[in-house]
């Protein structure tokens, strides 16, 4: 048996900017954040708070709103645009209660057959004593479990930084989109450099070597679409947000057409298709049993 995943050629289109430039663009504090997308794309938004156990995390927000004429559940990491807001938002690094709120709201969406839209924008999950005490790893894992089995369509978009398990915790989706100047990585470039070379200052090198840009990840088949930014999103937020809304709308319509929300059998197929999507990600070679 040969079940060999093709070795992937490094054929990403000639990038006009380096991977590290993309990281800097993705982190630009003036880049639109989740609330900016909500403001422009979603009507009648009702934010829902709290994990019903410990607290309400301001770094990961969620609620119900009307998108493209349909009531949906929206979740997203929220960074601040200035220091004051960033302190309130913990720089977009969610704590366990944030992931537990997200998990709760996804179940809520499933109960009322609302599609889920997520906006990923975090350097990673909060790495502090308190978050460890309250089970950061388990909170993330439980969110993954819920998303993998959720019986409504999910579209995730990386709008800035997609860092590590803290990003994936709201990223197990039927369609995963990335803005052109966003990045998505197994650990932050600083974290990767620290693990690989014990030197966080080599982050720019890690950014290049780890293939974290949208075009590279599209080549790998890990994401489904790159949303173009003719100008960086912080320079022309309106255009970037509108393009993002159009892309999400298109994918959501396709998913709903293929897997109608009133059709239980179709929703079984949706979950099976999501399983197949993630089941197939990996790169290995196999020697036949001898």
């Amino acid at each position: 048996m040969t079940d060999v995943a093709d070795p992937i050629q490094q054929t990403a289109p000639e990038a006009p900017v380096s991977a590290w430039d993309r990281v800097k663009l993705a982190r630009n504090p003036k880049r639109p954040h989740t609330l900016d997308y909500l403001h422009d794309l979603v009507a009648d938004f009702v934010e829902l708070h709290g994990d019903r156990t410990f607290g309400d995390d301001q770094a990961l927000i969620g609620g119900i709103g009307k998108f493209d004429g349909r009531s949906v559940m929206i979740l997203g990491h929220q960074k601040g645009s200035d220091t004051r807001e960033n302190l309130k938002r913990n720089f977009g690094m969610a704590r366990p209660e944030g992931y537990r709120k997200a998990e709760r709201l996804m179940r809520h969406a499933e109960k009322f057959r609302m599609p889920v839209i997520t906006f990923i924008d975090t350097s990673g999950a909060d790495p502090t004593l308190g978050s460890e005490e309250r089970g950061q790893a388990i909170a993330i894992a439980e969110s993954l479990v819920t998303m993998a089995g959720l019986r409504v369509p999910i579209v995730a978009t990386v709008i800035g930084e997609g860092g590590s398990g803290g990003a994936l915790a709201i990223g197990v989706a039927d369609r995963v989109l990335m803005l052109e100047n966003s990045v998505y990585s197994v650990a932050s470039p600083e974290g990767s450099a620290s693990i690989l070379w014990k030197d966080a200052a080599k982050a720019p090198e890690a950014a290049e070597r780890m293939r974290i840009t949208a075009h590279e990840l599209l080549e790998f088949g890990i994401i489904d679409e790159v949303i173009a930014e003719p100008a960086p999103a912080h320079e022309n937020a309106r255009t970037a947000i509108r393009a993002t809304g159009q892309a999400i709308s298109r994918h959501l319509r396709e998913l709903i057409a293929a897997f109608p929300l009133h059709d239980d059998e179709a929703l079984d197929r949706l979950v099976a298709a999501r399983y197949t999507r993630f089941r197939s990600i990996g790169s290995w070679q196999e020697e036949s049993a001898g």
Partner: peptide, 14 residues
């Protein structure tokens, strides 16, 4: 293995 590694979290849990 970059993002391929991260995706194993979703794959195994699923």
């Amino acid at each position: 293995e970059g993002l391929f590694s991260l995706m194993q979290m979703a794959k195994t849990v699923a």
